[in-house]
Design a protein around this nucleic acid. Structure first.
Length: 482
RNA sequence: UCCCCGGUAGCUCAGCUGGUAGAGCAGGUGACUGUUAAUCACCCUGUCGGCGGUUCGAAUCCGUCCCGGGGAGCCA
């Protein structure tokens, strides 16, 4: 227990009291997170937990309460004896979803299923959950149903595990880049530049925009960002290596298990960097993140492995251990043509690879993450660097089994004349990208970067089939309940 | 947005070629039990996704809209 002046994990007792204290009607208390208790159980320790009742089972003269507080997948079993003052009136009426504050002593469990359990000295009910109307039951629910109650779904095992893994991955993204000297840049969410080729923009304006002189709040049409790349390039060409990690918006009417209208994207941008190093960084980053969750989220991954995607952990371990395969677009086309596989869309040099092609490459031929580079210039955006052959650009896609494209990136066109010509070919007005051209007029540098769809990463790591389950509050066409 | 499939009790689903509904789980009551998706008995539950049409009669057939799933496009 706490002693005055003690510091726990760098947090002072006063700070912890600010967070956890004074919640109970019986005065302040010091709850211990179940994850901490189970990580280093001390039999005989007097402690307090607070959490949600997962289930209550009655035995002769006492009840079992399974209590979870979200700190871990595992719950703590509470023994509630009938000698408790409120046993008959309250404890016996506890049901799934109720919130309780339990004070007691940790003891060894005589039965199988758990090594320790909390023998309650007092149980305070903080919140009831009427079993007649509480939607969550002690049984499996479909993810489609849970999506309709996304304010309650993080209380389930699977969605809680997703939230913990997602948080860890987010932390890992920052760790990876910060440890390598990358500067985080907060690129704008409201933007007036369309990152060409990145999809439809949501318009941003205000009903009273007409009261602003030009009729546009920002003096020109504005929208929610579809990519932070162009602005990240600005900072890369001042600070060297930068990254941006923030929300991204696409107004596409996409209805798939891999698309959201609002999602999070990780976009590093490196000055003095070519496509090969860009590729290496992307592979290193993915392996770093996978290694992180394999070691730090093992219990949550085990849940996914068992119930969501059999063999998940072995698959992730294999990705960490193996080198990613790398082929050029031209080689990909040849291999698809020679595969003997018949596709709905015939493979021909010059067409973009379709989903069926990408899946066949990564799932059937290579059976591991695959990097495809050097795509035809005609199917890629103007900012990608034109290669010496004049036909291809220094682009790369990283394809993973089950998801398809998880990363898209390129070396950027740093030559003013070539960039200008590519803009004109693409029908992009150079005047509206004058600031972008300035970066090539003054002290231009070869540079590269990529975009990682964060939710697709979480999907890949958790094995969740639908991207709507790996973001807390999914936004899709016709859906944004809270 | 396009193609295919689906929408029936709180949840997961059954309901053949039209005759206005049923199971398991959950919930309630009781019994039993160091239980752990506890067990046993009894009880309760429905605008059959919305609207319109065909028919004596529609959960069932037709049209349309909404929502979900699978695939595609767009992409991350």
């Amino acid at each position: 227990m706490w002693r005055n002046g003690a510091v726990f994990q760098g947090i002072s007792r006063r700070q912890l009291n600010e967070v956890y204290g004074a919640l109970s009607e019986k005065g302040s208390f010091m709850r211990k997170r179940i994850a901490e208790i189970l990580a280093a159980p001390e039999v005989g320790e007097q402690l307090q937990i607070a959490g949600w009742v997962r289930t209550r089972r009655d035995a002769a003269g006492f009840s079992f309460l399974e209590v979870g507080d979200g700190s871990s997948l595992a719950n703590l079993q509470v023994i509630a004896e009938q000698t408790l003052a409120n046993y008959r009136d309250e404890v016996k009426k506890l049901s799934t979803g109720c919130t309780v504050l339990v004070t007691g002593v940790l003891q060894e469990s005589p039965a199988k299923g758990q090594s320790v359990e909390l023998r309650a000295d007092a149980i305070e009910v903080l919140g009831w959950a009427d079993p007649e109307s509480y939607p969550l039951q002690k049984k499996h629910h479909s993810f489609e149903f849970l999506r309709e109650i996304c304010h309650l779904r993080p209380r389930t095992n699977a969605l809680g595990a997703v939230a913990r893994v997602r948080s860890r991955l987010s932390y890992g993204v920052h760790t990876f880049f910060q440890e390598r000297g990358f500067i985080q840049v907060h690129t704008p969410i409201i933007t007036t530049s369309d990152c060409e080729g990145a999809g439809e923009m949501f318009q941003v304006t205000t009903p009273s925009a007409s009261s602003v002189d030009s009729g546009e709040f920002f003096g020109r049409p504005a929208g929610l960002t579809v990519s932070g790349q162009l602005q990240a390039e600005v900072y890369a060409q001042a600070l060297g290596n930068v990254y941006t990690f923030g929300p991204t918006f696409r107004a596409e009417n996409s209805n798939t298990s891999r698309h959201l209208a609002e999602f999070w994207m990780v976009e590093p941008e490196m000055a003095f960097c070519d496509l090969a190093r860009n590729r290496q960084l992307a592979e290193a980053m993915l392996k770093f993140l996978l290694r992180l969750v394999l070691t730090e989220c093992a219990a949550d991954l085990a849940l996914f492995d068992r119930f969501i995607a059999k063999g998940l952990v072995a698959k992730l371990e294999a990705v960490v251990d193996q080198d990613f395969s790398h082929i050029t677009y031209t080689q990909a086309v040849e291999q698809l043509q020679q595969s003997g596989q018949s596709f709905v869309y015939p493979v021909k040099w010059g067409i973009d690879l379709q989903s069926e092609h990408e899946r066949y490459l990564t799932e059937t031929i290579y059976q591991r993450p695959l990097i495809v580079t050097d795509y035809p210039a005609v199917i890629k955006p103007f900012y990608m660097r034109l290669s010496d052959d004049g036909l291809t650009v220094a682009a790369m896609d990283i394809l993973v089994p089950g998801i398809g494209e998880i990363i898209g990136g390129s070396q950027r066109e740093e030559r003013y004349d070539v960039l200008l010509a590519r803009m004109q070919q693409a029908g992009v007005d150079p005047l509206s990208y004058d600031w972008y051209l300035d970066l090539r007029r003054y002290g231009t540098v070869p540079h590269s970067g990529f975009g990682l769809g964060f939710e697709r990463l979480v999907q890949f790591v958790t094995g969740m089939a639908n991207i709507r389950e790996v973001i807390p509050f999914p936004r899709t066409p016709g859906f944004a309940p809270c």
